[in-house]
């Protein structure tokens, strides 16, 4: 964020969601320092900014792996054999539980609520990209591709 720019009320506070996204991008996740900087910049209490970071699920206050694998556990994904099956597969394949990160720091596994891909389920997100009609085979290919970037 550019320092020294005067931001008018009430638009100042409206910048908070965007400011948190920018800080998260710069710091990797919303560290204490990141939250304090956003708070100072927008002249808001630190606790207030932290409460925003904890309310919205796309903000992270803990570090994650390079790729966050988010498997949709919505009803439409489950009905076509997704959700649990894909989560189980990924847990075994990566040797971790939901919420954990692989030791090489590459993958974090999470479950998420409906991704609005019910017609092309099962669905998952990897960072900002959406992957639809997922199967264990397609997960294998995806993981291989992502690993290939870091050899």
């Amino acid at each position: 964020m550019q320092e020294g720019v005067q931001i008018a009320d009430p638009a100042r506070r409206s910048m908070l969601l965007t400011a948190l996204y920018i800080a998260q991008e710069q710091y990797g996740y919303l560290t204490k320092d990141a939250i304090e900087r956003v708070a100072n910049r927008l002249r808001l209490p630190v606790a207030d900014v932290y409460s925003m970071a904890s309310f919205y699920s796309l903000y992270r206050t803990e570090p994650t792996g390079r790729y966050v694998l988010q498997v949709c556990e919505g009803l439409s994904c489950h009905l076509v054999g997704g959700a649990d099956r894909l989560v189980d597969y990924l847990q075994k394949k990566l040797g971790l539980e939901v919420g954990q990160t692989t030791r090489d720091g590459l993958f974090t596994l999470e479950t998420v609520q409906c991704l609005a891909s019910c017609g092309t389920s099962p669905a998952m997100r990897v960072n900002d990209a959406l992957y639809e009609n997922m199967t264990p085979e397609r997960i294998d290919e995806l993981l291989e591709t992502l690993r290939g970037y870091h050899v």
């Binding site: 919505g74 009803l75 439409s76 609520q113 409906c114 609005a116 891909s117 019910c118």
Partner: peptide, 11 residues
């Protein structure tokens, strides 16, 4: 802000 499970028209 489409998020109702089962809905994917707005996207």
């Amino acid at each position: 802000d489409e998020g109702e499970p089962g809905t994917f028209k707005d996207r």
